[in-house]
Design a binder for these strands. Structure first.
Length: 546
RNA sequence: GCGCCUGUAGCUCAGUUGGAUAGAGCAACUGCCUUCUAAGCAGUAGGCCAGAGGUUCGAAUCCUCUCAGGCGCGCCA
């Protein structure tokens, strides 16, 4: 639809001798403003030194392919509003049904390789709701980009080295001793969740009392490794239950083992971005706009957490992806300048890495904040939320908001709404269509004949409105891919369902009039194709009956 | 103190990167099941887009300032 108009306008401009690249075409909000509109006459008014309406007139006058349109109007301060002819709409709808995804999606990525890194939670405890938001957004974004012609790799960075997993091991060790009645101090900032006790119990069963007399350092490896591995397995399981799968799990330890950390520092040193001061090793991130230089090797010889992060991003960028996307919790936004400094120090443009911030989720129950204290180990996990309100609902709530908006997730509202929840509203449209088809089959209608249906029988206002909405999908899709914004798809689906349900209520699809029935079934089929594509991108299920 | 994010209907949020008379869903009120699914439909009501300036044909959107909330500013991760 848009492409066609673009082509026509391009030609028109040529014949008028006006050079104008990238004609702005938009979907008007108001139905009376036609199917597509362009404000181009207004933008040209200054350079051409003519009033916009006059320019619009000239443009309209020079359009050769009048058959495509039912009418072309000048409106308001100089908009040109295009209303497509029915014949054109039917032919496009036919193309949609024939070509399916080829019609709906467009190849924006052109095979470009992009890596999306998300969740990357420390394997020291279960995922919480904030991770869930990252998971839902990262997954939908990956699907969206894939649908838009990118080759996408989804990666989870596993912090399996360093202080945090060690602390987990120590916590489990302390619990292990305490379980045997020993008076053993729990680490200062240790992990206190119930899962720590579970891990300790499992180790006690496996090793009985053989470590009781030992110090932590003697058994550190056993306790750390078995603990974080179990947590990681749990995280993986929770993500799978949430419908999120990764292509790659990059281990932080692996970076040390493969000498990547050392190499990365050496690399930066050779480039002249490393210096020693007060016994520590520093990276000159201020050369690239960071507030201060950052320590990468401490006075005591230990690496800071930043060192493996440097190595990790160096490794990523040297894999030569065309685009790197990191999805972080907004509380980490302060790290953006230093990571981008790394990117630049390694000789790549800042834009090679795109950091998408996902804002904090505050969890409420009945309007009251749910108290969460990580230190005391009291927090609601993603798993619990998914069990309580459902995976589709949870995802949908995340995907009906911009990632950078602060989000209030009220468990009661999410559940109480469940009867009239937007996600069900959209899924219900799909279920209804399935049910229509089931009914049609029962009536002995040959559902496979839809391809040759006479679509011109679809000429009520509601039907034309639906067809136009379907034909707008490629524009919405394209916009979503370019902007990297899956939530646009969510809103589109709600709008589509929002015109299907009234239609369903007002008209019967399966009637005695066979040709009309087939035409309406074709319309339903087209809706189903689009809904299904949207569900797939958002990672939602498409239940056949509800 | 500095930096980032946010501020739109009673509540939760959109607003097509600057377009036309700012939109949904909840909640409230009035109606609709003998029909392909009522997880639905029809209707009513709800707004100083936090505030003040500026930029221009045109601002919720861009710039400056103010106010409010959130989050960051370690040789912690």
């Amino acid at each position: 639809m848009k492409k066609r108009l673009q082509g026509i306008l391009q030609e028109t401009f040529k014949s008028l001798g006006i050079s104008f690249s990238g004609v702005d075409i938009e979907l008007p909000k108001e139905e009376s403003h036609g199917d597509l509109a362009t404000p181009v006459a207004m933008s040209l008014s200054k350079t051409l030194k003519k009033p916009p309406r006059k320019i619009a007139e000239e443009i309209i006058h020079s359009i050769s392919e009048k058959d495509t349109f039912e009418k072309i109007e000048i409106a308001g301060p100089g908009f040109i509003n295009f209303t497509f002819s029915k014949a054109y709409l039917y032919s496009e709808m036919k193309a949609l049904m024939r070509d399916g995804l080829v019609f709906l999606r467009s190849d924006i990525g052109k095979g470009k390789r992009v890596q999306v890194e998300f969740v990357s939670a420390n394997p020291t405890g279960p995922l919480h709701l904030g991770h869930g938001r990252g998971a839902a957004v990262g997954n939908a974004l990956s699907n969206l980009l894939k649908a838009g012609g990118y080759k996408v790799e989804k990666e989870f960075y596993v912090n399996d080295a360093g202080r945090q997993v060690r602390l987990l091991g120590m916590s489990v060790f302390a619990k292990y001793k305490q379980l045997s009645g020993m008076d053993y101090p729990f680490p200062e900032d240790g992990y206190r969740g119930d899962y720590v006790e579970e891990l300790a119990k499992e180790l006690k069963i496996a090793y009985e009392e053989q470590f009781l007399k030992m110090e932590f350092d003697e058994v550190a490896e056993t306790f750390i490794d078995s603990s974080y591995k179990k947590m990681l397995a749990l995280i993986k399981k929770d993500l799978e239950d949430f419908g999120v799968y990764f292509d790659s799990w990059q281990s932080e330890r692996g970076l040390y083992e493969e000498d990547e950390v050392q190499q990365a520092i050496k690399d930066l040193k050779e480039r002249g971005y490393i210096y020693e001061k007060e016994g520590a090793t520093w990276f000159t991130s201020t050369s690239f706009g960071d507030d201060k230089d950052r320590v990468i090797i401490k006075k005591d010889g230990e690496y800071t957490y930043f060192a493996p992060d440097i190595a990790y991003h160096r490794k990523k960028i040297e894999k030569k992806f065309d685009e790197l996307i990191d999805i972080w919790g907004a509380d980490h936004h302060g790290y953006i300048p230093r990571i981008q400094a790394v990117i630049q120090a390694l000789g790549y443009p800042k834009e090679s890495l795109r950091v998408l911030l996902v804002q904090i989720v505050s969890l409420l129950r009945g309007g009251k904040p749910v108290q969460m204290s990580k230190r005391a180990g009291e927090f609601v996990t993603l798993k619990e939320v998914v069990e309580e309100v459902g995976a589709d609902t949870t995802k949908f709530i995340f995907l009906t908001r911009r990632p950078d908006s602060h989000l209030e997730f009220d468990l009661e509202v999410a559940k109480a709404q469940s009867a009239e929840n937007p996600v069900f509203y959209v899924q219900y449209a799909n279920a209804r269509i399935n049910s229509i088809f089931a009914h049609a089959k029962e009536q002995g209608i040959d559902v496979d004949k839809l391809k040759n249906t006479d679509l011109s029988l679809l000429n009520t206002h509601e039907e034309l409105r639906i067809i136009k909405k379907l034909l707008a999908y490629p524009m919405v899709f394209e916009g979503a891919v370019i902007a990297h914004e899956p939530h646009r798809i969510t809103f589109y689906l709600q709008e589509l369902a929002g015109i299907f349900h009234p239609y369903y209520h007002k008209y019967k699809v399966v009637t005695a009039d066979m040709n009309l029935t087939l035409a309406r079934l074709a319309l339903c089929e087209a809706i189903r194709i689009v809904l299904k594509d949207g569900f797939e991108i958002l990672g939602l299920s498409a239940p056949e009956r509800m």
